[in-house]
Design a protein around this nucleic acid. Structure first.
Lengths: 313, 313
DNA sequence: CAAACGCATAAGTGACGCTTATGCTGAGGG
DNA sequence: CCCTCAGCATAAGCGTCACTTATGCGTTTG
């Protein structure tokens, strides 16, 4: 019934004291104001303006409208400003979720970059096991997720479902074989899996374990998995203690170094692909896009840096 | 940029959880909602709604809009309600002004009627000498005025300027000659002015004095005005004390009776016309119209009542 | 796997609201 | 006292905005 335009007109008339003045102030022609007022009057069924001679005055009802106009227009302006702030990255929010082992390296770097670039964007981060980040993304509880996928897996059923989501490739994380420094093959340049068929194996997260099994199957043996833990620091500790060997992604090795272990590139090489995931719509939200960019920047920084040497520093 | 309709749509989507639900709630078709959202999004330059599969969710910006929507729409509703209250006489204001001698009789009666009929309409009354009520009306400081005009005056210059104002005739107030009860002519049925050419005269307000002079001129003499006061109680007191005679309107005699005086009808009769005055626009304001009606009702009540008897009760 | 549900898109159309042009009336000045 | 200016009202014209119906495509559900 009453719209913002009408209120704006009433306020302009109250401020300017005339239809012509209001028209100039609002960038309309004078008849436009006349018509607007008439429409308002017949919509409200009340006379809003008293025409006396060639001056106009607001009636009580007109003053009511003009008074409410300031509140309504102010609220509208506030809303617009908040929207503009979100659009201009002077505000806004990104809710990031990632698998735990990314939390040590890539994510902190990305968060730091984002904070530097856009200090007013608020970021929340939650580490969670797959497929929780993507589930949260689908539920709307998260704006941006970091996921990974082992490449070369024949069975896509093991991969997470990426339908209706958009991904951005962050970096290819080379998987290395970690063995004790005292191991006979610790001096090699590369590691062939078949040479370790008789070893005891230490497996990481469920999907990493699946990847291990797949690779070993290709190499012609079934690994004997002696230990299983999602804590990669523990994995390295176990290896250092000589309790077995493990496949560990390079990204983790950079964060969790261990002096007593050696990490050899695999031959043939195997990588896991690390992806940023969001939805098509959220991708266009400035704060999310900024978060995405920050992740990419952090990833390229890692990619540019030399991979860890085979022998622990 | 953002209008009330857009906010209403955003709020409806937030409440209903779907475009279709919002469309039903607002009485629109579903594509109308789609288009509105798209328009809002390209106007704000921000994505407001995240379409995931066949469900829709508000983005942060969308939530901002929905949140402000409740405030803005509530303010709009409040404004509409206030206007409706004014239109429905559940609120509103009448600022009444009248010449002092009306304050004792007509105006209190009218105010009582108005208060009974519309208890929620707020009335303010100010007594003021002419032409102040009409000046206030022109300035916009008053909504309704009570004025009077002596009829039969050749010179309209003495009357108040009624241009650009609308009037409503309330009642014709007969002017009587007031003389002491002990006066030789106190027993007559009517009074001929020429019989009082030698009397001392007591005059009322300036315009009443003008009227007196006009009437006496017609009667062929120039009155000797011994006293002048705007206080009609004082006039009656002076007459009762035998200090002179006076012309006093019937309306005043009803309020200010005095046992020791006699009020005779004039021959030929003379009346002053009492008018309600307002502007064409204010006439259409419900509260003003109600005030006008109340004045008319009070006036007809007075007209119906028998005029005061010649001899004081 | 089929049906249903929900949003997006396209085309059409009606009406709402702004513009220019003009008239009328009151206010101010010569 | 008349003339001119200023300001609101009205009329006619027209462009555009927004809502409608019809349809398609995708996802979800039985």
């Amino acid at each position: 019934m009453i719209d913002a335009a009408g209120l704006r007109v009433m306020k302009a008339i109250a401020d300017e004291g005339s239809f012509t003045g209001a028209a100039n102030a609002l960038g309309f022609s004078q008849p436009a104001i006349s018509q607007m007022v008439r429409r308002l009057e017949q919509r409200t069924g009340t006379i809003l303006i008293e025409r006396y001679g060639r001056q106009v005055r607001l009636t009580e009802a007109g003053q009511v409208l003009a008074r409410h106009a300031v509140a309504v227009l102010a609220a509208l302006d506030t809303a617009e400003e908040e929207i503009a702030a979100i659009a201009g990255l002077r505000a806004g929010r990104v809710r990031l979720m990632a698998f735990p082992s990314s939390s040590a390296t890539l994510v902190p770097q990305a968060l730091a970059i984002l904070k530097t670039r856009h200090p007013d964007v608020s970021v929340t981060f939650t580490g969670a096991e797959p497929p929780e980040p993507l589930a949260a993304l689908r539920r709307g509880d998260c704006d941006l997720a970091v996921a990974f996928a082992y490449e070369g897996m024949e069975l896509d059923v093991l991969e997470e479902d990426l339908s209706m989501l958009v991904t951005r490739r962050l970096l290819d994380d080379e998987v290395r074989l970690v063995l004790p420094g005292t191991h006979p093959l610790a001096g090699e340049q590369v590691a062939r899996l078949s040479d370790f068929a008789a070893e005891e194996w230490i497996a990481g997260c469920p999907r990493c374990r699946g990847h291990l099994l797949t690779l070993c199957t290709h190499a012609g043996f079934a690994p004997h998995v002696a230990f299983e833990t999602e804590d990669y620091v523990a994995v390295l500790g176990l290896v250092a203690a000589g309790l077995g060997v493990a496949l560990v992604p390079d990204l983790i090795l950079r964060a969790a170094k261990h002096d007593d272990v050696v990490a050899l590139p695999l031959s043939p090489a195997s990588r896991r692909r690390i992806l940023a995931v969001t939805t098509a719509d959220l991708q266009r939200v400035p704060a999310v896009a900024a978060g995405l960019d920050a992740l990419c920047a952090a990833a390229t920084a890692y990619g540019a840096a030399a991979p860890v040497p085979a022998r622990g520093a």
